[in-house]
Simulated scan of single mutants.
Amino acid sequence: MSTSDRAAKSVAEAQVVDEAVPAGPAPAAPGARPATTWLSDIGVLGVAIVWGSTYVAMQWSGQFISVPAFLFLRFAMGALVITVLSLRVWRGVTREEVSLGVLFGCLLFGILSLETLGVRYTLASNAGFLISLSVMLVPLIERVFLRVRVARSIYPLTLLSLAGCALLTLDQGLSVRSGDLIILAAAVIRAAQIVLFGSRSKGREVSLIRVTGIELWVVALGGLLLSLVQPERSWHEVEHLPGDAWLVIAYLGVAGTAFAFLTQLHAARVSSPTRVGLVLSTEPFFAAVFAVVLLSEHLGPAQLAGGALVLLSAYLGRWVDARQRSSPPASEVKE
C-alpha cells in the first residue's frame, strides 16, 4: 500500500465492496449524504496518514528482522483481523476468487518485498514519493498493452513526474541510491498489478473483500515459506524481537493493513473510487513529514522540489484519468 504499504493499493484503484458484485470501475455512490461522504474522506485521509508512516516503521524495524519474517508477521496479523471481522462474507467463496487472490497475492508479495527491502537502503521520504510513480505508469501501461485511449495531458504529466524522480534520486550528484532503484522497480510492478487487476476482474461476479483476504494470506504464506529457507535465523529474529518492534509490526498489521482495507470498503459504498484515490494521493506528503519528524531526515531544495513534482503529477494524473474514463467516447483505440 501504500504503499504504500500499500497493502495493495491495487484494491484502492478499483471499486471495493463487501458483497459479490461486478468488479469493474464504479460510479459515485448514488444518494450518498454529504456528511457521510465527508466522514468517509476523513477515514480515507487517516489511511493516507497511516500509510505515510509505514515507510518509517518499515525502515526502523529492518534493524531487527529480515524481510520475509517481517512480511509474514505483519500480513498474518492483518489477514487474520480482516478474516475474523468479515466471516459472513466468506460463505460461498468461488474458485475464481481463489485464483484471482492467489495471482494478485503473488504480485503483491513481490511488490511489498521490494518496498520493504528498498526502504532500508534509501530515505523513507524518497520511498514515499517514488512509489507514487505507479499512478502515472498505469495509463501508459493500459495504452501500450490494452490499447486504451489516454488523455494527451498524461504524457507531459509523466515527464513532470520523471523530472521529480530525477531530483529525488540524484540529490547527491550523479549517484543513485540502490534503494531508490528497488522502490522504482516496485512502482513498475505495482502499476502492472493495478492494470492486470482491472482487466482480469472487470465484469466478473467476485467479492473483492474475499479476493483481498486471500491476497493477504498469500503474502503471509510467502513470507513464511521464505523464512523457512533459514529457519534458525528467522526463529532467532522473532524470539529476540524487542517489545517496541512487536508493537510496530502489530501497528502495521492492524492499522496499516486491516484498518486501511476496511476503511476503503466502507468509503467505496458512500463515495467513489476517484474521490478515494485522490485523498490517498496525499500519502507521499505524510511519508515525508514522518521521515523528517521521526527520522530527522533532511530534504534539500532539490528533493523538496522533486517530491512536489511527483505529488502534483500523481494528483493531476488521477484527476485527468478519472475524467477520461467518465467521458462519453469509447475508451478503446480504433484501428
Rank of each mutant, 00 (worst) to 15 (best):
G256E: 06
Y251M: 04
Y121S: 12
I194D: 02
L174R: 03
G256M: 13
V148A: 09
A32C: 08
I183D: 06
M1R: 05
L85I: 00
R275K: 12
H236S: 15
V102W: 07
F75R: 10
A187H: 01
E13L: 08
W51Q: 13
A29T: 01
R200P: 00
V50G: 03
A57E: 01
M136T: 11
R177S: 06
L228V: 02
D321Q: 14
T263H: 15
A28R: 15
V289I: 12
S40N: 09
Q303I: 02
P139H: 11
S161K: 09
T274S: 13
V270D: 04
Q303G: 04
L262K: 02
R120E: 12
S86G: 13
A32L: 03
A79P: 00
G31S: 09
L130E: 03
T54H: 07
E96H: 14
V320M: 05
V17H: 13
P273L: 08
F64T: 11
I131E: 10
A69H: 07
F104I: 08
K202V: 09
E297Y: 06
R204S: 09
Y155T: 00
A69W: 03
F129Y: 15
C165Y: 01
L311I: 12
D18W: 05
G43W: 08
L265C: 06
V206Y: 06
G62I: 10
F70W: 14
L87F: 06
V16A: 14
L137D: 06
A48V: 04
L123V: 02
L100H: 11
V206H: 04
Y251D: 00
G203Y: 04
S234M: 07
G110R: 11
H266G: 01
R143M: 15
Y155C: 03
R88W: 06
A302Y: 01
L221A: 15
G46C: 09
L196M: 15
F286V: 13
A166S: 10
A287P: 07
R120M: 13
L241Y: 01
T94V: 08
F285H: 01
A76R: 09
L221C: 12
D41H: 12
L312R: 03
G46E: 05
A127L: 07
L184S: 03
Q324I: 05
A35K: 02
G92D: 04
A186W: 10
S99A: 15
M58Q: 12
W38C: 08
A26K: 11
A288E: 04
V98Q: 03
D244T: 14
L146D: 05
V195W: 06
V333E: 14
L311A: 08
L103V: 09
C165N: 00
T212I: 11
L252P: 01
I189Q: 09
V229M: 15
A151P: 00
F145Q: 07
S296H: 14
E19L: 12
L130I: 03
V150K: 00
T282G: 08
L162K: 05
Y121R: 08
